[in-house]
Write a protein that binds this DNA or RNA. Sequence first.
DNA 1: TGTTAACCGAGACGGTACGTCCTGTCTTAGG
DNA 2: CCTAAGACAGGACGTACCGTCTCGGTTAACA
Lengths: 211, 211, 211, 211
Amino acid sequence: MRPSPPPVPHHKRTGRPRSADADRAILEATREALVELGFGGLTLGDVAARAGVAKTTLYRRWPGKNELVVDAVAALFEERLELPDLGSLRADIQGVVLRFAELLNMPETRTALMAVVAEATSDEPLRRRIRDAIVDRQKHLVLLGRMRAQERGELPPDDGTEDPGRDDMIFDVVAGSVVHRVMVSSEPVDEEWADRLALLLVAGIGGLHAA
Amino acid sequence: MRPSPPPVPHHKRTGRPRSADADRAILEATREALVELGFGGLTLGDVAARAGVAKTTLYRRWPGKNELVVDAVAALFEERLELPDLGSLRADIQGVVLRFAELLNMPETRTALMAVVAEATSDEPLRRRIRDAIVDRQKHLVLLGRMRAQERGELPPDDGTEDPGRDDMIFDVVAGSVVHRVMVSSEPVDEEWADRLALLLVAGIGGLHAA
Amino acid sequence: MRPSPPPVPHHKRTGRPRSADADRAILEATREALVELGFGGLTLGDVAARAGVAKTTLYRRWPGKNELVVDAVAALFEERLELPDLGSLRADIQGVVLRFAELLNMPETRTALMAVVAEATSDEPLRRRIRDAIVDRQKHLVLLGRMRAQERGELPPDDGTEDPGRDDMIFDVVAGSVVHRVMVSSEPVDEEWADRLALLLVAGIGGLHAA
Amino acid sequence: MRPSPPPVPHHKRTGRPRSADADRAILEATREALVELGFGGLTLGDVAARAGVAKTTLYRRWPGKNELVVDAVAALFEERLELPDLGSLRADIQGVVLRFAELLNMPETRTALMAVVAEATSDEPLRRRIRDAIVDRQKHLVLLGRMRAQERGELPPDDGTEDPGRDDMIFDVVAGSVVHRVMVSSEPVDEEWADRLALLLVAGIGGLHAA
DNA sequence: TGTTAACCGAGACGGTACGTCCTGTCTTAGG
DNA sequence: CCTAAGACAGGACGTACCGTCTCGGTTAACA
């Protein structure tokens, strides 16, 4: 899976092309600054300086701080988040929950994720960007997990009558619970907690099918 | 339950006392500004102007924007969030989920809540303030719901062996799921969705007890 | 004659009053920067830094670079330009021409004067400011010189029939000639040149009276 | 007399030759931009765009804004400024003063002239360029006027003892007075004022000869 | 009943970041 | 070698808020 491409300019192919090095340097500098200063302390001028790039170059590519941070953080999700095959639905869920929590505890993402989501509450384009760059890429993990469980016989196969929003709800529950635990309750997501959440979900999903 | 009082000054009781009108006017102005400008656009200078108050007065009472917003929003949770008794655990959960979603969709809270949580990721005192003013007041709803369910016989009575973090997890799951649905997925929380979540939880909780 | 007062704000007498020290420091810093960097190189940010003052303080008092420079330079004209009484009209003119040329050769004024006049060509308020702060204060020197010459008997006394714009023209000729000599022709204004100009003027004025 | 040619490149004569159209378009665009925006608002990027030319092309031909403006304005002086033969020294002077004032009131020159002179105070090459392209071409008018006056018998013929800087001073006085009147005093140069200046000068020159 | 200390409004203060603009150079592709 | 197009590093711009401060003036409890 390749990293999200930089926002494609719809120009003619004339003039000096944009430097790909600059893109890389900027995103790297952004993550570095997030670690050191947090989202609030992050300054576009500072990022530009770290990247050895002029502020204008930065503004030419991204509309502002929010979009830049989304792109900078998206790459981390890309490479870090996957669904391990651990032999059972419960173990799979536990595994992905632990990895997700680990990701949320990285200093780059800790402050950045909530902040951009907050900004996005009144910024539809930003909301779409977050979905495209981060959320939707996680969502397929739910689908994958379901398919594996169905192959194992842990869940009944689809028969065409199931709720189409079913996987979306599972995703909201998993992601939301972990985020709330980490960000709001400030409690650790350890193996035990992850297992109990997995247990609750497995039982709950069973209940949904039974209904 | 009265709204959280402004931080008490520990002075001698001499001199002119602080104006209580000012407090009210400031919190009201803050909510008004949140609706019009969102969290990011909210300015302490602007709030002061709306409240007909000097910036100094404002800074004398609150350390900064974050704390002010927490207090301004807390009152809303106080008055709006309660657990209706609808006759069954599933219906109770559905009911509180719908009320919570409604609260999250108010313009005052929509942007403010996520924003202060984001700020709180690197600000322990703010995190505590949020817990004291908002989160903990919701948490007792979980306890209340459990007790009702136990009275009804929907859940087994406590026998002293249960996980002490059990209710915390339920709270993280409920609150987190709704927040994620509303804020990140940008999908509506309607009666159907709330009911399905309630169903999943009831079954899941059952699974926890069975384990 | 006191130095030109800072632009008077028409506020109420409320709030913290503006610092008089800041005014002094800013004007001094402006002159210093003019010497070191010239008008083109002068930056309001740099002036603020030199004066130990915030940029905002500077913008609160002056609309921009042009007005600031006018005020900074005006003080020099105030203190340096006077009409010596040397016993004859011709010597008086020679004297004032030499002083004026000297002033134009100071590094503060050399670059600043022409620049603000240039800017003023499309900025009526600036033009007025220049007249008020600099030009009009010089103009009375012409009147003073005429009166002395009339007392000495070098010129006939006014009889009420003379051209009201007469002194204005003399002023334009004296000031314009010196400026052009120094700025455009880049030739020195030495005693001889000044004396020849004085001679031309005395004769010319005589011609005007004769007409 | 043709307009001053652009600085000749001393390259080999290989490769694609420079477009002469471009030169014309650039100078025209410069004058147009001067009228619309004034000197301060004039941008090389904007001039390039108006001329339908790349910025590179512009920088290849002129070192910067100042030089470009000098060349763009010089052509106007070339074609507009001449010494009419009106039968007497006084009338000749009046005539040239009126034409010069007219030139100074054109929007292209109004702001441009003072600005480049101001820039030239700390830029010797620019000063030379101004002299070559503008000032020296005017100076011969003084010589021409003197010769005509001598032919008419209004002035004594040269006898080899006269001051060599004599004509320079006349030039400084005429040009400086008009510029000061127009630019600084912001008063009109009408027929009456021009005549009075001519009268003063004729008498003054007489005084110089008598000395 | 006057003192007095803390309050209040207003607004200036030193700072910091903003997002835009222009400069003069460069790097493309094409003539 | 020139051209158009446009990206590049750099730097100043003028604005907006921040959180602090300094004023003159007000208000209520205490003496």
